[in-house]
Nucleic acid binder design. Structure first.
Lengths: 166, 166
DNA sequence: ACCATAACCGACTCGTCGGGTAGGATTTAA
DNA sequence: TTAAATCCTACCCGACGAGTCGGTTATGGT
């Protein structure tokens, strides 16, 4: 009923790269430290992101990763899909093109299972939510919330913080 | 990234009860046979549905299960939630009221993780899809698709079938 | 009274997979 | 040539999904 940490960590990784965008390649170790995530595990995740052409890598010393495109042009459904694979609420919805059957009991009887109607709606609900969210939004969000937690920037005492609630 | 078979089987169970509604209690064995699902496993699932007051049981001979309410008054988010527990896209979103922390890295630093924005949208996308679907719809869908697969009802040859596509 | 039928309940198994770790090979700037 | 980095494969481990099994209780029919 939930996504795994692959999606969570991978997205945080992308956000971190989004924050550092433009300053050249960022080594994974930096990201791992910033987000307090295991480096060796992030390596596996970033490999998926690279294969999906969401990040580019430069090897060797002073190497690292950076976004393949500006954050505003990356929608989160691509990211999540790259990390988790086909994004579907139920087994039946996986690899339709892969020769496997759809519903366990759709193979013999022909009546397509009624649950399909429901899962289809759920799936499109999830996907639309992800498509409608760009990496840039998340980067912006993380910037503003970081600022809220340590307001170094001098601000008139008592001045209201705009756009506080999500 | 997906729901487990608990939701799938449990929903199919509910649909089956919805089809038989009004004819008194239906024994689980009947449902198991109709849907070709393991009886012993269905017992566990129906227990969850009973605790959630979605079905009522009558014990003893000629006993069985039936819907606690008409199918039109049962929205699928209740059903799925009863079967799978808190419906959330990510660990952080579980048992907020249960003393556990939210995000792994939200406990120390205070900046709420930026991914939260994304998961919130996904969650509400899923929930809205489920809330907007009633059991009655699924029952109706299963009836009509069953009819399509074995069209016993005499129909004028070549007559078009209305509303074929979902 | 007795039996078949059913719901109920808890414990147990078995395989898969998420969530990593370990260790190395390869590339490249300084 | 060396240190910093990506890259790659293999392995491990606990949890959980997906059941199974055996037994107990309740109830209608005969």
């Amino acid at each position: 009923m939930i996504f795994s940490t692959k999606a969570e960590y991978g997205v945080r990784l992308m956000v971190e790269l989004g924050r550092q965008h433009g300053v050249g390649p960022v080594p994974l170790a930096t990201v791992a430290e910033a987000e307090r995530l295991p480096l060796a595990y992030l390596e596996q995740l970033v490999a998926k992101l690279r294969k999906a052409d969401l990040v580019t890598s430069t090897r060797g010393a002073h190497g690292g990763y950076q976004l393949a495109r500006p954050a505003a042009e990356i929608s989160m459904d691509e990211v999540v899909q790259a990390l988790e694979g086909q994004i579907a609420p139920m087994e039946c919805f996986m690899d339709q093109r892969d020769g496997k059957v759809l519903c366990s009991h759709e193979e013999d009887g022909d009546r397509s299972c009624s649950t399909k109607l429901m899962w289809t709606r759920v799936q499109s609900g999830m996907i639309r939510a992800l498509q409608g969210t760009t990496l840039a939004e998340l980067v912006e969000f993380s910037r503003s919330s970081a600022e809220r937690s340590k307001p170094r920037v001098r601000r008139r005492a008592g001045a209201p913080l705009a756009g506080q609630t999500a």
